[in-house]
């Protein structure tokens, strides 16, 4: 009678795991690439209350403020003061870059000027006021950029306001130059 062969060669208990590891890492790579770790952030923004009476606006001194007009082609027109009469002060053009024509330099310079002004109270000296006036031709990015500059330069008091009529003229005139 023929004998049944049992276990002539014992098969090794080891399994080749290479394909399993391959698959594992392939899936790891896939999930790593598709996972979004960079979550967007939020920047808080408080607009001036329209229903409030405007008396407290008078408390702001011209020598404490700088007005920044945002206009088309990423240009900024800025001048010192509140912008009630822009013809009194010299308007300058700046851009959003870090260079010598950058708005940051102008803001920081004005901040130093305000904090060194002997005619202001210590409280006023600490709080330079920036009036941000985006005109109808500027882009949303410009507004966010200038708000970001406020954060970078550590300016606490700023407001987004509309352009006055003399300022609209000013914008039109500086374009012609």
């Amino acid at each position: 009678m023929a004998e049944i062969q049992t276990g002539g060669k014992k098969s090794s208990p080891r399994v080749d795991m290479t394909p399993m590891v391959d698959l594992g890492f392939l899936l790891v790579t896939f999930f790593m690439v598709t996972t979004t770790f960079s979550k967007p952030n939020v920047m808080p923004l408080a607009m001036p209350d329209k229903t409030q009476k405007k008396d407290d606006n008078q408390a702001v001194k011209e020598s404490q403020a700088i007005t920044v007009i945002l206009t088309e082609n990423n240009r900024i027109i800025y001048y010192t003061g509140l912008g009630t009469d822009p013809s009194k002060t010299e308007a300058k053009v700046a851009y959003y870059n870090d260079g010598t024509k950058g708005i940051r330099k102008a803001l920081l310079a004005r901040k130093d000027e305000v904090s060194a002004n002997p005619n202001l109270t210590p409280d006023q000296r600490k709080n330079m006021i920036v009036l941000i006036k985006p005109d109808d031709k500027c882009r949303y990015k410009n507004v966010v950029d200038i708000l970001d500059e406020m954060k970078i330069c550590d300016i606490k008091t700023y407001a987004i306001v509309n352009l006055s009529d003399p300022e609209k003229e000013l914008v039109a005139n500086t374009k012609a130059e």
């Binding site: 967007p40 952030n41 939020v42 920047m43 808080p44 923004l45 408080a46 607009m47 001036p48 209350d49 329209k50 229903t51 945002l70 985006p134 005109d135 109808d136 031709k137 500027c138 882009r139 949303y140 990015k141 410009n142 507004v143 966010v144 708000l147 970001d148």
Partner: peptide, 26 residues
């Protein structure tokens, strides 16, 4: 690239119902 007047209109709509504090996603 959105134009500022569109954004301003949205802000005005919010301010019309006294929402003066909001956030900007960045």
């Amino acid at each position: 690239n959105s134009k500022y007047p569109v954004v301003k209109n949205v802000i005005d709509i919010l301010q019309k119902q006294n929402v003066n504090q909001f956030s900007i996603v960045t």
